[in-house]
């Protein structure tokens, strides 16, 4: 192997990387928060919602979980304008991530809801709560707590999957690496640095979600 590694470009191009990291973090934050909210809504609809709604949610979940994120992204960004729905690359990227996480989150959260003992529902009803109130005040938080580790890993997976949004020219970390390698011809080094940053982001995100879990569910986790 007669190749000398050269990381000299880092001096000049680090602001590009920082900007890319910012976009990736932003996409993950927006996608994570909205995606989990969508997941909660769909999980409610699928487990407890009106019967007429359930097949539609099921179809959405199956469709998203059985197609690649890249194709979902392309369909939203390139396909939807044919129907008159136009959006920028960041909006498309965010929308794709929300829809994607919503489907996976739905299945994970539903498992948490369905593990709720039926006495909890009856207790809520006996206190005069409506079904929605029971869900909101009695069922949801313990359900989320039960599946928090699984939901956390899914959010990390969505963050890592967001590397694909560079393909619709959303200027995330992967886009930054592409840009740098096209300028410096140091492809391996550029992707190597980006990979290490992704690894750090994944580890950091995992820790942050664990911390969030402790603050969201203080009572039970104190046991």
């Amino acid at each position: 192997m007669n190749y000398t590694f050269d990381y000299g470009w880092l001096l000049q191009y680090w602001p590009v990387l920082v900007k890319g990291i910012g976009i990736t973090v932003e996409l993950t934050l927006v996608g994570g928060v909205l995606g989990v909210m969508l997941g909660i809504g769909c999980a409610w609809a699928r487990a407890l919602g009106p019967r007429g709604l359930r097949p539609f949610v099921a179809a959405y979940v199956e469709l998203i979980r059985n197609t690649p994120f890249l194709i979902q992204l392309f369909f939203i960004f390139f396909g939807l304008p044919a129907l008159g729905v136009r959006m920028g690359e960041l909006e498309a990227a965010n929308l794709a991530m929300v829809i994607n996480l919503g489907a996976y989150g739905c299945e994970i959260i539903r498992a948490g809801i369905q593990a709720t003992p039926s006495g909890q529902f009856e207790a809520g009803a006996s206190l005069g709560m409506s079904r929605i109130q029971t869900f909101r005040h009695v069922v949801l938080i313990p359900a989320l707590q039960r599946i928090w580790p699984a939901l956390s890993s899914q959010i990390v997976i969505v963050m890592l999957g967001s590397a694909a949004v560079s393909q619709i020219a959303a200027e995330d970390l992967t886009f930054a690496a592409n840009f740098i390698q096209s300028r410096t011809f140091r492809a391996f080094e550029a992707y190597f640095v980006a990979t290490l940053i992704y690894l750090a982001l994944a580890i950091g995100l995992r820790q942050a979600l664990r911390g969030l879990g402790w603050t969201l569910f203080p009572r039970r986790s104190a046991r």
Binding site: M1, G161, T174, F188, Y191, A194, T195, Y198, I203
Partner: peptide, 19 residues
């Protein structure tokens, strides 16, 4: 902990380093 896309890039350009 890293994107599959990055692993693909590294395999593509990394194997290339061996000439």
């Amino acid at each position: 902990g890293t994107p599959l896309l990055m692993q693909l890039f590294l395999a593509f350009f990394g194997l290339g380093l061996f000439g």
